[in-house]
Structure formats: structure tokens, C-alpha cells
Design a protein around this nucleic acid. Structure first.
Lengths: 219, 219
DNA sequence: CGCGTCATTGATGTGCATCAAGTGGTGTGG
DNA sequence: CCACACCACTTGATGCACATCAATGACGCG
């Protein structure tokens, strides 16, 4: 949320964030083709966004957690182009986009904040493109885990112990790998003492080793 | 550019678009790490954007042509995170971002236009992620060529005859392939009568075949 | 307890990378 | 104007990382 606001500006922003919505695990917050009306700020829970084509191809484009905003894809054509599915029971703030535009004309900090959120998403996707285009399986998983732990850390959670909210198949879809390959990479990290893996419970024992994999120093 | 404006609004927008800059082929419009000040609207010429990591990994994240906007990556951290390099002599409009924000507070159409441009980029990158994560080499090249011809068509150029502004290596980098693989895919398309390939001069003989490849109907 | 879902592990196959040689087009300087 | 060098491209031979196919194992839930 933007900083350094006076009381009046804060009121205006509170206003746009008033409506809440609860999403049950496994159900969609919005779906491909649906009319776009609002952005959503995640209050609690964990989401994936994914696109699917007619011919059955489909891809997870991102995992989102509390504090992050989803729905940006809908702005261009007034319709969503992907599905946002809750991976656990979740709650979001519904932020009507016309209200956001209206208020961001008055509150400069909000305007800039919105621009930064969209720019951040563009930069994040650049990173994913780099990952998909030039990394090998273990490097991809290492990058994924580092990203996840870092985001958890900024939210005050442990950086070393985490519980995955998604299946191996969903991780694979995000990373451009098959679930078996993801599973094997986990097993390999465990053998090497980098991780402790018990189903979805992950313990990061050697974060530096993960970092080296991503940077290529290990080669 | 946004539509349906009155004369006064148009003046305001003309104002932000006044400064021009010429870029010689092979030189950078901006580079990774550089301070972000402006977005750039391409007037003429052809660009690539690419990211490079310390360890030598690098990836073309997009190709941009006249009418498109680059520099959006710089907004988040006030610094650019990629390089924009001209693939031929080019000219851009320099649009200082603080002026854009200022004017878009007054001109609703501009505000929404900016949001749409950013959202479009996000959606485009979703498509690239799908491509990198789940398509095979020939499907990737087919998708790339269809995208290119479509963008050229909307600019009034022929949809069937085009001259590539980039090398096989740059195409490969964008598509997550090696240059030899790109070259082989071109040769294969030529054998099958889908394309006529003479160096960088491409003739699309059977656009439907390309479309089928992308959709997977051919499998 | 028994079933369904998710995960692990092994055996085999394949698409693309890698290595390597050769071709053609372009620009430069004699 | 030609000879040369350079670069982008093509094409073939080989290897490897990951996909695919298949069987088994662990957990949670009715």
C-alpha cells in the first residue's frame, strides 16, 4: 500500500478497498473470458493464475500470496484472459477498477502505486521468461524456491521452512517441466543436503547452494 | 493513441510527445541499471529488449515496432532492468513519465490508455510464457511468425511477405531455442511449402498451416 | 478400512543442444 | 573491380536432459 498519505487521502483509499470476498479452495476468483470489473488484493490465502488454450495446452503463469494484486490482465480488453484459482481458502479485497482510476486522479501516490504494481508484474514476467528460456530443471526449481522463500520472508514467515500450497504438477506447469522432473529435482536436492523434503513440507538447509545454482556459479 | 479527445486534451498530449530522439542501428535506447525517466513511443524502426545476468545468461524478452511503447520495466524501481537495442536506425518520441502521470490525471482517456498499454504487455508476456513452457520448436516459430505478420498487417504492410530485422540467434533467444534449431525449423517449413525462406526475406505461403501448428490441430 | 489423489522412482524414448564443417552474402581495401 | 575477411546461416553427426510410460508408495478423507 502507498505511503505518506494524509488522513483524507487515506479515507479515499479505504473506500475502494471496502468490499471483501471469500473464495473457497479450488474455486475461481475469475475466469478466462469473464468481464473485467475489478482488481483484487489478496488478504489471506494463496492463488494460482493460469491460461488455457482450446487445444488443451495450459500453463500456470504465477502464484500469488497475501498482499499481492491479481486481475491486471483484464484491463486491456475489458475481459480476463486467465483463470485465478484459490489453492486454499482465501479472502480478497474487491477493488472496482473505475474507482481506482477515479481516485488515482486525485491521489498521486495511489496513481504511482498502481503503475508500480503493473511494472513489477512486467519485470517479474521477464524473469520467468529468462527462467523458461535458458535454465535447466534444477536451476528452475532453485529459482522458484528462492523466490518463494523471499516473498514469505518479507511477510514475516520463516525463510527456511515452508509448506507448498501447490502440487508438483502445478509447479511443473509454472516452470515448464513435467511433474516427474520436478519430483526428481526435489529428491536430488534432498540427496545433496540442500533441502529436506517431506511431501509438501520443505526445509531449506542450504540457501547458498540454491543461489549458486541460479547464478550458474556451480557449473 | 487514445481516441475521442477534444482539442484541448489533444494539445496536452502533443506536448508530452514533442521530444524526438534518433537511435542508430545496434545502439541502445536505454540499458539495464540506467535511471528511468521516460517511456518511449517508437516512430520508426525496430527494437529488441533483452535482459542479461552476471553469469552470462541472456534472453531477448521482446521485439518492438513502430507504434509500440518501451520502457515500462523501469517504473517499479526507477531504474531500467533491461536493454533496448535498435535493430535498424530508428526514431522514438521521448515521453517523460512524470509528465505522463501529470497529464493522465487530467485526461481520463490518456490515463486509461496507459493502463491498457501496461496490461497489454502483461498479457503478451503470458503468451510468451505459454510458448516457452509448452510448445515445441516448430510451434514456437510458427507462433512467432504469425504474431509478427499480424502486427505488420495492422500497420498496413503485407501479411505474407516480410523481412526479418533480427538474426536467427536473436529469434532463438526470444523463443528459448538455439540458432541451429531455428534455422532447421525454417528449412523444414520451406520443405513443406509453408514458407519461402531466402535469408531474412520470408514469404508466408500457407498461413493456415502455421495456425494449425500453434493450435496443435496438426498433431 | 478402502479408495482417490498426489508423489516417488525406474526404464526407455526423443527433441533439441552441442559440436563441427561448409556455404553464401556483404563490406572493405588493394 | 576483384580478393579477402567476416559474419550470418545451413546442414550433418552425436549426445544429453527431460519427456514419457509404468509401477509402487504415502497420505487424507469418507
Amino acid at each position: 500500500m502507498p505511503m505518506g498519505l494524509n488522513a483524507q487521502e487515506l479515507d479515499r483509499i479505504e473506500e475502494v478497498v471496502a468490499v471483501r470476498r471469500k473464495i473457497k479452495r479450488g474455486t475461481a476468483l475469475f475466469s478466462n473470458g469473464e468481464k473485467f470489473t475489478s482488481l483484487y488484493a489478496i488478504r489471506t490465502g494463496f492463488f494460482k493464475t493460469c491460461i488455457a488454450t482450446e487445444d488443451g495446452r495450459d500453463q500456470v503463469t504465477g502464484f500469488q500470496m497475501a498482499g499481492e494484486v491479481i486481475g491486471l490482465d483484464g484491463i486491456v480488453n475489458d475481459h480476463h484472459t486467465c483463470d485465478a484459482v484459490a489453492l486454499e481458502d482465501a479472502e480478497v479485497c474487491v477493488m472496482p477498477f473505475d474507482r481506482i482510476e477515479e481516485i488515482s486522479r486525485e491521489v498521486n501516490a495511489l496513481q504511482h502505486h498502481v503503475h508500480k504494481i503493473m511494472s513489477r508484474e512486467i519485470v517479474r514476467e521477464h524473469g520467468v521468461m529468462l527462467l523458461l528460456g535458458s535454465m535447466r530443471a534444477e536451476e528452475r526449481l532453485a529459482a522458484f524456491l528462492l523466490n518463494l522463500t523471499q516473498r514469505l520472508r518479507t511477510r514475516g514467515f520463516s525463510a527456511s521452512s515452508l509448506i507448498l500450497r501447490m502440487t508438483r504438477e502445478e509447479i511443473g506447469s509454472y516452470l515448464g517441466l513435467k511433474l516427474e522432473t520436478v519430483s526428481r529435482a526435489f529428491s536430488r536436492f534432498q540427496e545433496e543436503g540442500i533441502l529436506s523434503v517431506k511431501q509438501r513440507h520443505i526445509e531449506v538447509l542450504d540457501p547458498d547452494a540454491l543461489q549458486k545454482l541460479v547464478n550458474g556459479t556451480a557449473c
